[in-house]
Design a protein around this nucleic acid. Structure first.
Length: 830
RNA sequence: GCCGGGGUGGCGGAAUGGCAGACGCAGCGAGCUUAAACCUCGCGGCCGCGAGGCGUGUGGGUUCGAAUCCCACCCCCGGCACCA
């Protein structure tokens, strides 16, 4: 038994908390022991796949990586302590533009640049002390990975889900290259400031729209509602009708339009084509030709971004073609216009314009002095322009009087009976353009043969390896096109000379299946084996940033559904649960950026405070899904807590055996209340309140020890040991190093991370007495101390015995008394 | 414009129908120290000497009781932005 009295000044113990010593020590031990290696199967344990999004190897870890990954690590560790066989892997999304830009600037070869960054960032990631299983590490730029990305492409091609077609892309005439939409700023190239043009090029597309309806069906997923909503909006399903109209003087042509409101067709007063519509050439009259050509030319020169934006443009831009279409509903001719508010890429690229019921059509009609006819009766108090709500049809012949839904049905039936139209569904989501005219990506495994046309590279010839020696010179095509060795090949069908595809794949393809590879990292016979897929998929908990709410999470769902149809993965969805953490900002509350000078390097925080302190502080800042500014001064509070914890755990009070004492029971009550709170909070990912609860228990133990010392008393050993051991176990997921160190110092068996999560005992949590506030008309006037399970009569009697009882009531009689057991007593007087 | 999230002390936040401000930062006071730092203890929404009054963006409502539920409005953040 320890009888030493702690020295007077608490700083005067030889052994201080020194994270810079204990953290590297334990990480080395864990690595040497393979503590975080996850086998595919463990007897008697259920598998659980916990995943946090992988980083792009930009060169340096960011506070945001710590903010995203360390709470996810805490969850993985928690479930491990709960008895699961938890896989928590890590890797690198290593293809991408920044590596290639470095090469264009002459700095380094993309591969060398990437490999150096990966090596550096792997070390930075290891400093987190997370339970990453590095034996499963993946890197999307390595041939043994992108071989299977190419394989997926071939599977998509075989299934008719990959096709080559023409598309309008952003083109910079000075850099002589295609630009991503994100690289076009205000219609200009972000690098050289040239005006960006639209060019029509042949590109590879994946037909994600084939899965639109299934992707839309995300209601049942355990994901944040706002993310599911964003995906539904992105997919943008619209139901309506498509029908065709005759064009005056062109018996051989017809104009097809899509509408969600066929019930308003009698109100069509004009029709509009997208400027790129193929009919423009044929229907434009001689008088209008000059004006139309001038308009089309102007639109061509503007970017899609400008076209889709209403800013800076008061009205809608358009021109009359001189031609007329016949409205099949009333046989009336209506003028055909071109306008930039109609998009070639949606529906048929043409609309019937009903200004009475559509605001955009209303605006155009006003600007070009076209007639407006209401075909839905607005309410008497309606004051707007176009009326888009429901109401009885008017001016619509045989539809008059019908409400919207019924009227739509009748109109569609009418169109179908005459064979000029049908029910139709449209989506705003478009097929996924995956071609990139870039070097640093997975080559698209296709071959062009003059005789046999487009041919896939046979599976047994994968990977199509990215050559190292290429010239980085802007040409408008992938640098791969400059490599004769790469381009020149033979046709897999006829064996004659042929050319390789030189475009590479969008890096989102690499990240659409990486989570499968972790389950089976070394497999050179398959992307993922059946056994590995059965063992690990789908993912139990995925966490990451909401910037990926649409693109990555939608693409990955698409890939998974295709993989399911191929029979290689179980279930319909890759991510059973998804949680989106918030964004950490600079101390000034703005996005961290080098140009603003508000970047907080995580390495500096770790060097100054230690990884455990940094981890716990990031979790303590606020709710995980909220994020917020990083306050460099606040971390000292967490540092003080861990120092105090160290002191409490290493400097013992004098002990007695007094399990029944009030003090012992108070310690046990605090212990079990904390176990219960932390368990609830970690399930809810409420890390900030977990840290608060752990601080409170630490403070309770500290006070108990000091109070005993002041009064020359001893502390019950069993209660103390239970409290400290529980505290260390509860904080192990958050602060893996210091909990391990103190666990060992308390004489326990290595490792704390192999222990079971503590269980709370409700009976030990009950308070002896509770303070019940006594309210009069809802205002607290006094309080009484009673047993927690006291009945109303007891509490009321205690209240009536209060010296100021009649003063509180103001001399009146209670009109009504409300008692909430164990909570409060409210006396109502009138 | 549409959709989503949010507004609580000097600051980050806690409390989701029952004692507003847990936990922490910054601040103030005291102890320890030659001194400072560290550490420890205490104070801490606003007004008021006090009893008490007022307080969770604003205004209304429901309720014995509202930060929490309902209605209207204001502001901030994020996403989408002519999809017929």
């Amino acid at each position: 038994m320890t009888t030493d009295t702690p020295s007077e000044a608490t700083t005067d113990f030889g052994d201080r908390y020194d994270p810079s010593t204990i953290e590297p020590k334990w990480r080395a031990r864990w690595e040497a022991d393979g503590l975080y290696r996850t086998p595919d199967h463990v007897e008697g344990k259920e598998n659980r796949y916990q995943l946090t999004m992988l980083p792009y190897p930009s060169g340096d870890l960011h506070v945001g990586h710590w903010f995203a990954m360390t709470p996810s690590d805490a969850l993985a560790r928690y479930y491990r302590m709960r008895g699961y066989n938890v896989m928590f892997p890590m890797g690198f999304d290593a293809f991408g533009l920044p590596a290639e830009n470095a090469a264009f600037k002459g700095n380094a070869h993309p591969r060398d640049w990437t490999d150096a960054n990966v090596a550096h960032m792997r070390d930075q990631l290891k400093a987190m002390g997370a339970m990453f299983d590095w034996s499963r590490e993946m890197n999307s730029s390595r041939p043994d990975y992108y071989r299977w990305t190419q394989w997926f492409f071939l599977q998509l091609y075989t299934r008719g889900l990959a096709e080559r077609k023409k598309a309008l892309v952003n083109w910079c005439p000075k850099d002589n290259t295609v630009l991503a939409n994100e690289q076009v700023v205000g219609g200009r190239c972000e690098r050289c400031d040239s005006l960006v043009e639209q060019r029509e090029l042949e590109q590879w597309f994946l037909k994600i729209t084939d899965y639109a309806d299934e992707l839309l069906d995300n209601e049942a997923l355990d994901w944040p509602e706002h993310v599911k909503l964003m995906q539904r909006n992105w997919i943008g399903r619209s139901e309506g009708a498509q029908f065709s109209m005759r064009i005056q003087g062109h018996d051989d042509l017809e104009l097809s339009v899509f509408t969600t409101r066929p019930d308003t067709s009698f109100g069509m007063t004009f029709a509009v084509l997208a400027p790129e519509h193929p009919l423009v050439e044929q229907i434009t009259t001689a008088e209008q030709r000059a004006a139309v050509e001038e308009f089309v030319d102007r639109i061509k020169r503007s970017t899609e971004i400008e076209r889709l934006s209403t800013e800076g443009d008061a009205g809608k831009r358009g021109v009359f073609t001189g031609a007329y279409a016949i409205n099949p509903f009333n046989e009336q001719p209506v003028p055909i216009y071109l306008a930039d508010y109609v998009l070639m890429s949606y529906g048929t690229g043409a609309i019937m314009a009903v200004p009475g019921q559509d605001q955009r059509d209303w605006d155009f009609a006003k600007a070009y002095d076209l007639p407006i006819l209401r075909t839905v009766q607005p309410p008497a108090d309606f004051e707007g322009d176009a009326y888009t709500g429901d109401g009885p049809a008017i001016n619509s012949d045989w539809l008059d009087g019908l409400l919207k839904e019924q009227s739509i049905g009748r109109a569609i039936t009418w169109l179908e009976e005459r064979g000029i139209g049908e029910r139709r569904v449209n989506y705003r989501m478009r097929d996924w353009l995956i071609s990139r005219q870039r070097y640093w990506g997975a080559p698209i495994p296709m071959v062009y043969c003059d005789t046999c046309g487009i041919q896939p590279v046979p599976e047994d010839q994968l990977p199509v390896v990215l050559p190292y020696d290429v010239e980085f010179r802007p040409t408008g095509e992938s640098p791969l096109s400059l490599s004769e060795d790469f381009v020149g090949t033979t046709c897999p069908v006829c064996d004659e000379p042929a050319r390789r595809e030189t475009d590479t794949m969008d890096t989102f393809m690499c990240s659409s299946w990486y989570f499968m590879r972790y389950a089976d990292p070394g497999d050179d016979g398959a992307a993922i084996s059946f056994d590995a897929a059965q063992a690990w998929l789908p993912i139990d908990q995925y966490t990451g940033g909401s910037e990926h709410a649409v693109m990555h999470l939608l693409y990955a769902r698409f890939f998974y559904k295709v993989a399911r149809d191929m029979g290689i993965v179980p279930g319909d969805e890759p991510f059973t649960r998804y949680y989106s953490q918030g964004q950490i900002l600079g101390p000034d509350g703005r996005r961290m950026s080098k140009s603003r000078g508000n970047v907080v390097p995580p390495d500096d925080q770790v060097a100054k405070w230690g990884a455990d302190t940094f981890r716990a502080y990031l979790m303590f800042l606020g709710p995980w899904d909220q994020g917020g500014p990083y306050d460099v001064d606040g971390i000292v509070g967490v540092s003080r807590w861990l120092n105090r914890l160290w002191n409490v755990a290493t400097v013992e009070p004098s002990f007695v055996d007094a399990p029944g004492s009030d003090e012992a029971r108070a310690i046990r009550r605090a212990t079990h209340q904390t176990i219960a709170r932390v368990t609830t909070d970690i399930e809810a990912k409420a890390f900030n309140t977990i840290v608060a609860a752990l601080m409170e228990l630490t403070n309770t133990l500290h006070r108990a020890r000091e109070a005993a010392k002041d009064e020359g008393q001893s502390v019950d050993r069993a209660a103390w040991d239970e409290a400290l051991d529980s505290l260390l176990l509860l904080m192990a997921p958050l602060c893996p190093h210091v909990s391990e160190e103190l666990w060992e110092r308390r004489g326990h068996e290595y490792s704390i991370h192999l222990q079971s999560w503590p269980e709370s005992d409700t009976a030990l949590m009950v308070e002896d007495t509770v303070e019940i506030p006594v309210q009069v008309n809802g205002k607290v006037r006094d309080r009484v101390s009673v047993a927690p399970d006291a009945d109303e009569a007891t509490v009321r009697a205690a209240a009536e015995a209060l010296p100021r009882w009649s003063e509180h009531l103001g001399g009146k009689e209670p009109f009504r008394v409300i008692y909430v057991p164990g909570r409060l007593l409210n006396v109502v007087v009138k």
